[in-house]
């Protein structure tokens, strides 16, 4: 039995640009078969075994709720900001818990080891203190004042620079990061991952970006994100246990893991246990 709290959330199920007529995209959501397609009138339908699901279109993607939506889909105000380029990056299928995929996205300490010489490099491995909160008004997890040294933050830069990040968990399987923008000092680049939970141990990850960048070719942006996510996949498919532990068990977090701790606590408090394990093991 999947808890109602899980069923009443929004999940990404397709990229709008790729929609087709019936049978459209045949896929799984929370272990159940669905079809995502355009009907004869051009409307987007997400068809489950028991009928159509609630649908929202946003951020280049189709979002579906298999239960009764507990709230509208989270906002990303930057999506409507003039001058931003919205980039769909396709999809990466990963044999891991959807929650592990989100947790990895929130993690910076792995940059020097998994994204070596791109997002991080030894000996610049230190993760300084940052702030984490569960915001009661929006019911989101936020990490702010995250700083990290990056060797190749911009292609033109001769040396590395310290990049500032903010992370936001906006839905159980969706996260948005804000990153200092090399082309616009007053703005943040926005990079999100939307994770479709196919099953508790299988997901599809849709990266999506809203950038101030008129020059880099679209193909290069997509290829860069794909490379990063393929590196992450080699980690995500090799973590034990497969499900995300919500209770302290054999895993030992440190101060650098405060976002992960808050994310797990938030999931547990809300009963969002699909892809998680409650018993320490």
């Amino acid at each position: 039995m999947i808890p109602a709290a899980v069923l009443n959330e929004w999940y990404p199920v397709a990229m709008i640009a790729q929609l087709a007529a019936w049978p459209g995209r045949q896929t799984l959501l929370l272990g159940s078969e669905i079809n995502v397609f355009r009907d004869a009138a051009g409307a987007v339908v997400v068809q489950g075994a028991d009928g159509p699901l609630a649908v929202t279109l946003a951020y280049g993607h189709v979002w579906a709720c298999p239960g009764v939506p507990a709230h509208p889909l989270f906002p990303i105000p930057e999506a409507d900001q003039p001058g931003r380029r919205l980039v769909d990056c396709g999809v990466v299928r990963v044999k891991c818990s959807p929650l592990r995929a989100v947790e990895n996205f929130l993690d910076i300490a792995h940059f020097p080891f998994v994204h070596t010489d791109v997002l991080g490099a030894e000996p610049h491995t230190e993760v300084g203190r940052y702030e984490v909160q569960i915001r009661e008004d929006s019911d989101e997890v936020w990490a702010t004042k995250v700083h990290f040294y990056q060797p190749q933050a911009a292609k033109s830069a001769a040396g590395g620079i310290v990049t500032e990040y903010m992370y936001r968990v906006a839905a159980p399987t969706a996260s948005v990061l804000y990153k200092t923008c090399p082309n616009n000092a007053d703005e943040w680049d926005v990079i999100a991952i939307f994770v479709q939970p196919l099953t508790e141990e299988l997901c599809e990850v849709w990266p999506w970006m809203a950038l101030f960048d008129d020059t880099t070719p679209q193909a290069d942006l997509i290829q860069f994100q794909q490379m990063i996510f393929l590196q992450d996949r080699s980690i995500l498919e090799n973590q034990i246990p497969r499900l995300l532990p919500l209770d302290p068990g054999k895993e030992i977090p440190t101060q650098a893991d405060l976002t992960s701790i808050a994310y797990r606590r938030w999931l547990k408090r809300k009963g969002l246990t699909y892809g998680a394990q409650m018993v320490a093991a």
């Binding site: 980690i235 090799n238 973590q239 034990i240 054999k250 895993e251 030992i252 977090p253 992960s260």
Partner: peptide
């Protein structure tokens, strides 16, 4: 084959 931090396989 399990890192005590977050469960990554140490054989990698």
């Amino acid at each position: 084959d399990r890192c005590p931090h977050r469960g990554m396989r140490l054989s990698h």
